[in-house]
Design a protein around this nucleic acid. Structure first.
Lengths: 144, 144
DNA sequence: TGGCGATAGTTGCCTTTGTCAACTACAGAA
DNA sequence: TTCTGTAGTTGACAAAGGCAACTATCGCCA
């Protein structure tokens, strides 16, 4: 890969990081931090229901995560129920309140995205999705 | 924009955020934090040579930035020279040591990108750049 | 089966990062 | 020349996160 290409990719990276840094405010006006919001999302939408799964997905320290989860439990957004088959683990699930919060977060995040890409025609939207897909397909995931 | 599209875009966002969260480690093995690295980059490459410009670009608190800049000066990576035409402002520039560090950072960041997109043919690389450009061109920048 | 290294999660301790408000100094316009 | 706004600094504080030690349990295998 030549230097010119690398320069352009780095420019895209800066651009995209900035955009989504601005957009990653969907948790505001809730009482949640960005990490807490992402946790609710991962549990509620992607069924990652143990701390270890979250640690992998969110690349966060387990000690820190433990505390954040505790906070979510105290706020009655999260439940930790003992895992019957593995007594070291705890299964995480959202309380009704947690589900409400998640719905709200999703609403906000959707709105953000809709604003960022407002006014595209159907054809442009398709093209955009294809472009994103292309990027995703051509990144070499670093192995963990 | 329909729900399906929004969902896919949010998936891309999560993906890309994660990738570049992993990739944003180019400052490691230097003594610099990510913010410090980005500051050197903005000053050295993009000629943003006052604190206010950096505040805008990096969306960082001015009090905090002030301290970080002070630290960079102490490390002899940065110089602050009085602005003759505006005596409130200070012009920022890299010391020779700072320029060396910047070169090192650029090297590391380039390597990261090259690794992430390793093995693409020239045609694929062109396609990738076009895809990124398309995304960039179709985002509605939120006005500050 | 019982002993042992690995894994899940918690806790204490500490550092770094970031926020907020008050403050000084200067600019630019009325 | 006074008033409002901007550039940057400082103090006090809160939030975020890293690190290591610890408990409990698991799963393997001699």
């Amino acid at each position: 890969m030549n230097n010119e290409a690398i320069t352009q990719i780095r420019a895209f990276d800066r651009f995209y990081t900035r955009i989504f840094h601005l957009a990653d405010k969907y948790h505001l006006k809730t009482n949640l931090t960005l990490l807490e919001a992402r946790i609710l999302l991962e549990i509620g939408e992607h069924h990652r229901d143990t701390a270890s799964l979250l640690i992998q997905e969110l690349t966060v320290d387990k000690g820190y995560l433990s505390r954040v989860l505790k906070r979510l439990v105290e706020q009655d957004l999260l439940r930790q129920t003992p895992d019957e088959t593995d007594k070291r683990a705890k299964r995480l699930s959202l309380t009704p309140t947690g589900q409400e919060q998640l719905a709200l977060l999703n609403q906000r995040a959707d709105d953000q995205v809709a604003t960022l890409f407002a006014g595209l025609s159907a054809a442009e939207t398709q093209h955009l999705l294809a472009a994103m897909q292309y990027v995703e397909d051509h990144v070499h995931l670093p192995q963990d």
